[in-house]
Amino acid sequence: MSSESFVILLTIFVLAGFVGYYVIWKVTPALHSPLMAVTNAISSVIVVGAIIALLKAESAWIEAVAFVAILIASINIFGGFIVTNRMLAMFKKKEKKL
């Protein structure tokens, strides 16, 4: 990778960090658990790396490694979003009742 593209990626990283900083401080403390569950789910976007690896792997064992990576990341993606949904539904329920 050229040093130029590294700096571009670094720029993206730093700016995303700032966006995160301001967005996260706005999250209401009551929803810190769903925040953690949903960040967990989205950090599993690492699955995209594993998908590319599995699609383009040359050796069988790298295929296997990529397969396992997709599998465990998917546990996280589905599990994370579903458990977040479960929690948020609890907070939503009352608003209808009242």
Binding site: L9, I12, F13, V14, A16, G17, V19, G20, Y21, V23, I24, W25, H32, L35, M36, T39, N40, I42, S43, V45, I46, V48, G49
Partner: peptide, 18 residues
């Protein structure tokens, strides 16, 4: 991968703030 960097930064910062 730009998406991994963006998402990772969001999650990393979120965990750090918590």
């Amino acid at each position: 991968n730009t998406l991994l960097i963006i998402t990772g930064a969001l999650v990393g910062v979120s965990g750090a703030i918590l």
